[in-house]
């Protein structure tokens, strides 16, 4: 009896694992299909510009405001801790490195997944549920080329821009708190930051991270929308899955990328 229950448990774990692997594989295949059918997006770039508006511009407010607050909190907390060691001037280094290396790309991607990723899934899912994708297919227009690819590229282009804006805004927030509010020396704040932050190793790596996150979020969002069951529950479930899977993917990819970047792959 106990053996039976244990076996059932193990079987359940196996089943879940297989399903996750299957889903990841299917998303990757879909990503490949999207890239294959991207010619239209670049020939008619106004389609992508439209999606940059919906994914990027409309995420601007949440990204800028969150960036500012995160930077301010980092400034406060950093100053609090660093003054115990008499090195308040290093607060600029702390704020800048945390943002540029980690928080900028990761938090911006998490916000992007819940703001723009879910919207992409819901939109494509609803287009499928109302037969708009079928209609397009019957008009001899490939929905992956016409609907999915522009949204994918719009998101992929927006993501690094948003991450950089988040970091820049956060550093301004840190500056406001540390220099303007608390009175850390202005010159030391910037010069220490400049001495510690390396363009190639910190800033470019941060941008590479955000680009990878952008690809992951957009691939998941478009895939979930395209494969959503054509019902109300189907679309709402797909939207939730987009946010959950994207967030997990962002954090897992961040670990892998950080490990590679710290070890140095070049």
């Amino acid at each position: 009896m106990a053996l039976e229950a244990t076996l059932r448990g193990i079987r359940l774990v196996g089943d879940k694992t297989l399903r996750i692997v299957e889903r990841v594989g299917a998303t990757a295949v879909f990503l490949g299909l999207t890239v294959m059918h991207s010619a239209t997006s670049f020939r008619r770039f106004d389609l992508v510009i439209r999606e940059i508006f919906y994914a990027g511009v409309q995420s601007l407010i949440i990204i800028l405001v969150s960036g500012l607050f995160v930077g301010m909190v980092l400034g406060l907390q950093g100053h609090e801790t660093l003054q115990n060691y008499g090195s308040e001037q290093s607060v600029g280094v702390l704020v800048a490195l945390s943002l540029v290396r980690e928080l900028g790309p990761v938090v911006a991607a998490l916000l992007f997944a819940s703001r723009a990723g879910s919207a992409i899934t819901a939109e494509i899912g609803l287009m499928k549920a109302t037969e708009q994708l079928s209609a397009m297919e019957m008009m001899a227009i490939n929905p992956i080329a016409r609907v999915v690819a522009p949204r994918f590229w719009g998101g992929v282009i927006s993501m690094p821009l948003l991450a950089m804006l988040f970091s820049a805004m956060g550093i301004i927030g840190g500056y406001l708190v540390a220099v303007v509010l608390i009175g850390v020396d202005d010159g030391a704040f910037w010069s220490q930051m400049q001495a510690a932050v390396d363009f190639r190793h910190d800033i470019v790596n941060g941008i590479i991270k955000s680009l990878v996150f952008g690809i992951a979020v957009c691939a998941i969002a478009t895939f979930e929308g395209f494969e959503a069951p054509p019902t109300a529950e189907g679309v709402s479930g797909a939207t939730t899955r987009t946010v959950v899977s994207s967030s997990l993917a962002i954090l897992a990819l961040d670990l892998v990328l950080t490990a590679f970047m710290l070890k140095g792959w070049n």
Binding site: F53, V57, L161, M164, L165, S167, A168, W190, Q194
Partner: peptide, 30 residues
């Protein structure tokens, strides 16, 4: 729509310049 996307891209570009020159060591020929 084009105007907004233009503003967005320019903002992103400026933040890139700020990160490179003001925050990073690009000005020092890094």
């Amino acid at each position: 729509l084009n105007l907004w996307v233009g503003i967005f891209v320019l903002l992103g570009f400026f933040s890139f310049l700020m990160l490179g020159f003001k925050v990073g060591n690009l000005s020092a020929g890094g």
